Amino acid sequence: MSDFLTGIAFFLIIEGLVYALAPSALKRMAALLPQMPEGQLRTSGLAAVAFGVLMVWFIRGG
């Protein structure tokens, strides 16, 4: 459970850094999201999930 909470903490740290260091870039990106096809968003999300799972697997000594 502590690994899960650590993961959430790292997520919050990274999200906070994006909002703190590049708010205008984040706003521009958010404005572009409605124009992207749902399939492309879904594919990008699934690729990010797969990459994250692979990273955890390699880090944990998979």
Rank of each mutant, 00 (worst) to 15 (best):
M1Q: 12
M1G: 09
M1N: 09
S2A: 02
S2P: 01
S2I: 01
S2E: 09
F4V: 10
F4Y: 08
T6W: 00
T6R: 04
G7L: 01
G7K: 02
G7Q: 02
G7A: 00
G7F: 00
I8L: 05
I8N: 00
I8V: 03
I8M: 03
I8G: 00
I8C: 00
A9H: 01
A9K: 05
F10A: 02
F10C: 01
F11C: 12
F11W: 10
L12D: 04
L12C: 01
L12N: 09
I13M: 02
I13V: 14
I13G: 01
I14K: 13
I14D: 08
I14F: 03
I14G: 04
E15K: 06
E15Y: 04
G16P: 13
G16V: 04
L17T: 13
V18P: 13
Y19D: 08
Y19V: 07
Y19S: 07
Y19N: 06
Y19A: 04
A20T: 13
A20N: 08
A22H: 12
P23S: 07
S24L: 12
S24T: 15
A25Y: 10
A25I: 11
L26D: 13
L26E: 14
L26V: 08
K27L: 07
R28W: 05
R28G: 10
R28L: 08
R28Y: 05
M29A: 15
A30I: 15
A30C: 09
A30F: 11
A31I: 08
A31L: 14
A31T: 11
A31N: 15
A31V: 07
L32P: 05
L33K: 14
L33D: 05
L33I: 15
P34F: 03
P34I: 06
Q35H: 11
Q35T: 13
Q35D: 12
M36L: 12
M36T: 11
M36D: 02
P37D: 13
E38F: 02
E38P: 00
E38W: 02
G39S: 05
G39I: 01
G39N: 10
Q40S: 10
Q40G: 05
L41C: 02
L41E: 11
L41V: 11
R42Y: 01
R42D: 11
R42P: 06
R42N: 11
T43L: 02
T43Y: 00
T43R: 07
S44N: 10
G45P: 09
G45Y: 06
G45T: 05
G45R: 14
L46G: 01
L46T: 02
A47R: 15
A47M: 14
A48F: 13
A48C: 12
A50I: 05
F51C: 13
F51Y: 11
G52C: 05
G52E: 03
G52V: 03
G52N: 12
V53G: 05
L54I: 10
L54C: 09
L54D: 10
M55C: 04
M55F: 04
V56F: 08
W57S: 08
W57V: 09
W57M: 14
W57F: 07
W57P: 03
W57C: 04
F58N: 11
I59F: 09
I59A: 12
I59W: 10
I59H: 08
R60G: 06
R60A: 09
R60Y: 01
R60C: 03
G61R: 12
G61E: 11
G61C: 06
G62Y: 10
G62S: 08
G62M: 08
G62L: 09
